[in-house]
Computed example of a mutant assay.
Amino acid sequence: MNKLICVVCGMEINDKNYDFNKEGFITSNHIDNIDTCPFCGANKEYLVQGGKAIEFGDSGKLDSTTLKIIDHAVKLEIFNGDFYKKASKIAKDEKVKKVFEALSRIEYMHARIHKKIGGFTEDPVLREMDYSKYNSDEILLEMACKREKHAVEYYEKYSSVVEDKNIKSIFKALSMVEEEHIQLTDKGQTL
């Protein structure tokens, strides 16, 4: 297998990690056919042999509106990552647990990408949420699907506001990942 670099998250994909987070995707990577980044979920068009991560330059040059959008994107992805982490502990079905664990790692990677774009060094402190009232896998999946739809709406809305073409490209890539997560968390796909 040739080593690939995901230009969205900068991670190297090789024969040891190509199937990482496989539960977080509808179709799995195979050693001789890598369709998605196992770390952030970006599709094949963002995977480049010998490539390097998209560069954002000096975050100080981003206008205040763009920085605010990126800051909110960090919070959105961490909030979703936290939800999936907790949902993986509440879920009853082992397959659903594994899906939520993988989605948690993917969402945290999205937050890491946004932190890099905005030049943020610390995670925001978000309010601790209690998800214990979601007492079935079906309810957890329904809540997950709503979160993914919100993320897609966020990226689509703000990709028309930001002017940086690299940020627009990242938003497009991550929106496509979140669209797949909508399909994955739709009740029929996971159970």
Score class of each variant (00 low, 15 high):
Ile5Pro: 00
Met11Tyr: 04
Asn14Gly: 11
Asn17Ser: 08
Tyr18Ile: 07
Phe20Lys: 10
Gly24Asn: 10
Phe25His: 11
Ile31Phe: 05
Ile34Tyr: 13
Pro38His: 12
Phe39Leu: 01
Asn43Glu: 15
Asn43Gly: 07
Glu45Gly: 07
Glu45Asp: 08
Tyr46Pro: 01
Leu47Asn: 03
Gly51Gln: 08
Glu55Ala: 04
Phe56Gln: 03
Gly57Tyr: 02
Ser64Pro: 10
Thr66Gln: 06
Lys68Val: 00
Asp71Gln: 08
Glu77Leu: 02
Phe83Met: 04
Lys85Gln: 08
Lys89His: 05
Lys89Arg: 13
Ile90His: 08
Lys92Phe: 13
Lys92Val: 10
Asp93Pro: 10
Lys98Trp: 01
Phe100Met: 12
Leu103Met: 15
Arg112Ile: 00
Phe120Lys: 14
Pro124Asn: 00
Ser132Cys: 06
Asn135Ser: 13
Ala144Asp: 09
Cys145His: 15
Cys145Phe: 00
Lys149Trp: 04
Lys149Thr: 05
His150Gln: 13
Tyr154Cys: 03
Tyr154Pro: 06
Ser159Arg: 15
Ser159Gly: 00
Val162Thr: 04
Asn166Pro: 02
Ile170Thr: 08
Ala173Leu: 09
Leu174Glu: 04
Ser175Gly: 14
Met176Thr: 10
Glu180Met: 14
His181Gly: 03
Ile182Thr: 02
Leu184Tyr: 05
Thr185Cys: 15
Gly188Phe: 00
Gly188Val: 10
Gly188Ile: 02
Thr190Tyr: 10
